[in-house]
Design a protein around this nucleic acid. Structure first.
Ligand SMILES: [Zn+2]
Ligand SMILES: [Zn+2]
Length: 803
DNA sequence: AGCACGCCGACT
DNA sequence: GTCGGCGTGCTC
């Protein structure tokens, strides 16, 4: 009898172990397959992690697997199965949480497999191919029917391995679950010249036709689909109306590069060479590729990937979610054609299924995606890339709270593949690892585009206050706006996220109050009465009107919303067209892109929003960027606030004003001398790093320590607090005698309530995870076991504290 | 987590 | 008498 070790998809810590099941006679089952199993009185989904010939324990009566859910390809590859174990140990998550994080829910339906022969391919390659006889055989089999089920081909003596190989070569096309997986043909869409637009009612269709007419050349259907510009239904009806042409174009072996390699600078060449050397030697190493915006990091990735592909290996590229909608995906497609699979959270289920199928079938060997793409089921990884490595989007914001860089590093090490981290402003963690010799660094200093940096102006808001200018817009920023509007140019105003914890700021000297132990901004806390609170260690102080630094009496809370900003802009410039982008205006899916595209089409003069618009957006027509309140970012209650502010400001300055006239950046702040602001204005990473690092060392923050954050939630505040205190005691007992570990008191979490439930946190800082992980785990498990009804416990190892 | 089993109160 | 409340305990 065969037995399967199954991870059952039940997300409860009480059943967080593997269960053994009998494999029914005749069931073709492999490690990694999805199954349905009886579990108590229910039937649940599970994943086979291992197969064995003997049962664990004779006293247990084993039940049998009810059915196999996956098709021919086990959803979990070998290294992903091993990764589950790593995730459990590293992030303290359950098997179920690990599996459902690694695999999106849509990829397990088997679906019947049909094949089609690509006659064009046969005509081009068939006769001189080494498999010429087999291909001739296939040609014969396919004469009667163009589309054959897999079973039929197996009967005729073609093996599965052979069929797979032919699909990867492009000789056969595989149809699976309604989508076609193929290396070769791609659908292109073109506008019919002089199509009568007035016959088209739907705004989406009209938009598409205008786009196609503007481009004046056929566009890849897959690309349009990824950008959310078309649906298959739209194309069908437009085609029926005779408004578009649908063309099927073949893609040749090397991906039919419609875009050729770009010429490299000396620095780029050296960077590519060092990566290629590692790929050739199958050597794992992490390389920081530090280069400013426009220095050509992407071209380095592309050429390194090309090498990996030549060697029959695969590449995994992560970019921030927001950047996926921009040109970067199109660029990968132009270079590698249908060998590219794109994964991100906003795709339709069907599209995601198709992308995964092309990966599983080995047709796609380059995966470009957001954070979750780090789990792409690639089994011959030759290169991994994380672009804009410092972005907070690489930290998962729900359980398990993994860091994509850690997962990527694990997979890269396992595959003996290099991991490339790209950034203009590397995180301190990464740069510190470079300095301590664990990572290597490659610099790209030249700007391939040669565009001048914008002029950066820092406005001292304390002076504005002295001049009795109370509003959000300084005179300098108003002048700049006026100038920009007069030249018919666009402006962007950035304000921090709303709903941010408020803090006290002296309007006369810019002083803020920070915790004497943690150096983190004290926030105004409303329960039970108004106090100043440190979310890290629970230090409390009374509110005050007078400034401890200058003695002035205007210590006030700080924070404004985009609505207020909108009103103020309109009061100064009643005739400008304002677009606002915040949580209120971007509730729906895709509204982000809609607002940005409306703005880039020139439908507004000024765009107001949070930092999100500073990310992926191309500011090419924007001549002015105003950072309305840099202090809001600077004084977020997080030890990383200076780093985040620096990164944001550098990014903004690097993007403003691409064409023609030099761009302008205006930064308003009550702390004009702050090192993060000064260094950002000078685009000087080194200066920032040299100032920030000693501060982190002194206060024992990352990169010198790591932070674990435990969150206790309950509907009643007292229960949440007591639970956190109990957890604190358990941690205290368990960590007794550990050196270089700090356990901080239970305190209200930065976000104190979510959907009515109160949240408390306990923070542990330590130097070595290996030294404390067992003890942390032990205390956490005990807390889970003793916590009462309604209390929920969460843990965030290597917390980024960005909530 | 879910579901069955079980042991007490107020309904036909 | 029995319908249903949710406390307890188990899931290969
Ligand atoms: Zn002051
Ligand atoms: Zn503190």
């Amino acid at each position: 009898m065969r037995y399967a070790e199954v991870a059952v998809l039940v997300r409860a810590r009480a059943v967080d172990r593997l269960f053994d099941y009998l494999v029914p006679e005749g069931m073709e089952l492999f490690a990694g397959d999805a199954v349905e199993v009886p579990f108590g009185a229910q039937r649940v989904e599970g994943y086979v992690l291992a197969l064995k010939d003997h049962a664990q324990d004779d006293s247990v009566s084993y039940r049998a697997i009810t059915q196999k859910l996956s098709g021919q390809r086990p959803p979990l590859t070998k290294d992903l199965i091993e990764l589950l174990d790593f995730m459990r140990k590293r992030y303290f998550c359950t098997w179920a949480a690990a599996v459902s994080t690694v695999l999106p829910p849509v990829i397990r339906s088997p679906g019947k497999r049909y094949y089609q022969l690509d006659r064009q391919w046969v005509a081009l390659h068939g006769t001189q191919d080494a498999d010429a006889d087999l291909i001739a055989g296939l040609d014969k089999v396919f004469t009667k029917k163009a589309r054959l089920a897999e079973a039929t081909l197996l009967e005729k003596g073609f093996s599965r391995a052979l069929l797979t190989r032919f699909v990867r070569q492009g000789c056969l096309t595989l149809e699976l679950g309604g989508s076609t997986v193929s290396r070769r043909s791609e659908i292109w869409v073109n506008a019919v010249p002089d199509a009568a637009l007035n016959r088209v009612r739907s705004a989406h269709k009209r938009e598409l036709l205008i786009l196609l007419q503007e481009k004046g050349a056929p566009q890849r259907y897959a690309e349009l689909l990824e950008q959310g510009l078309v649906t298959s239904e739209m194309i069908r009806s437009l085609k029926a109306q005779g408004l578009v042409q649908v063309i099927s174009k073949p893609v040749n072996e090397s991906g039919e590069e419609t875009e050729k390699r770009l010429a490299l600078t000396e620095e780029q060449r050296a960077a590519v060479a060092s990566i290629v050397e590692l790929i050739d030697a199958k050597k794992h190493e992490t390389i920081l590729l530090q280069g400013v915006t426009g220095s050509g990091k992407t071209e380095v990735y592309l050429q390194a990937i090309e090498r990996a592909l030549q060697k029959g290996l695969q590449a995994l590229v992560m970019v921030p979610e927001i950047a996926l909608t921009t040109q970067i995906v199109a660029r990968f497609r132009r270079r590698f054609g249908s060998r590219v699979a794109v994964l991100h959270s906003r795709m339709s289920e069907r599209e995601r299924r198709h992308q995964f199928a092309s990966i599983y079938e080995g047709v796609a060997d380059v995966v470009v995606g957001a954070r979750s793409a780090v789990f792409a089921p690639l089994d011959r990884l030759g290169l991994l890339v994380i672009d804009e490595e410092h972005e907070a989007t690489y930290k998962q914001d729900r359980d398990p709270r993994y860091v994509a860089r850690e997962i990527a590093a694990w997979r890269a090490a396992r595959a003996n593949a290099p991991l490339i981290l790209g950034s203009a402003t590397p995180s301190l963690e990464v740069m510190y690892r470079v300095e301590s010799g664990r990572y290597t660094k490659r610099m790209l200093k030249e700007r391939a585009t040669g565009r001048p940096l914008p002029e950066v102006r820092i406005v001292d808001m304390r002076q504005e206050m002295k001049m009795n200018q109370q509003g959000l817009l300084s005179r300098a920023l108003r002048d700049a706006l006026k100038d920009s509007f007069e030249h018919q140019e666009q402006a962007v105003l950035l304000l921090n996220r709303r709903g941010f914890s408020s803090f006290l700021l002296c309007r006369e000297c810019g002083e803020t109050l920070t915790c004497p132990h943690c150096d983190v901004t004290l926030t105004v806390h409303r329960t039970p009465e108004h106090t100043l609170l440190c979310h890290f260690c629970n230090y409390r102080a009374p509110l005050r009107d007078t400034c401890p630094a200058c003695g002035g009496g205007r210590m006030r809370t700080f924070g404004a919303g985009t609505q207020q900003l909108e009103q103020e802009v309109l009061s100064w410039f009643p005739n400008v067209r304002v677009l606002r982008m915040d949580v209120d205006t971007t509730a729906g899916v895709g509204t982000h892109e809609q607002i940005l595209s409306a703005f880039s089409k020139g439908e507004a003069d000024v765009l107001l929003g949070t930092q999100m618009i500073a990310k992926g957006h191309d500011f090419s027509r924007v001549s002015l960027v105003g950072v309305v309140a840099a202090d809001a970012a600077l004084h977020v209650p997080d030890f990383r606030s200076a780093e985040r502010t620096f990164q944001l400001l550098v990014q903004v300055a690097g993007r403003a004003g691409r064409h023609g006239r030099e761009g302008r950046v205006v930064i308003q702040t009550f702390a004009p001398d702050h090192y993060a602001i000064q260094a950002a204005a000078a685009q000087d990473y080194e200066q920032f790093y040299r100032t920030e690092l000693p501060l982190r060392r002194r206060l024992e923050y990352p990169p010198f320590t790591e932070i674990a954050q435990f969150i206790v939630t309950h509907d009643e505040e007292s229960k949440a607090r007591e639970g956190a205190q109990q957890l604190h005691h358990l941690l205290e007992a368990s960590l007794k005698g550990c050196e270089r570990v700090q356990l901080l008191s239970a305190a209200p979490a930065v976000v104190g309530r979510i959907r009515g439930a109160y949240r408390y946190q306990v923070v542990v800082k330590y130097h070595s995870f290996r030294a404390v992980s067992k003890r942390l785990r032990e205390a956490f498990d005990q807390a889970v076991a003793v916590c009462g009804n309604g209390v929920s416990l969460h843990v965030d190892i290597n917390s980024w504290m960005t909530l």
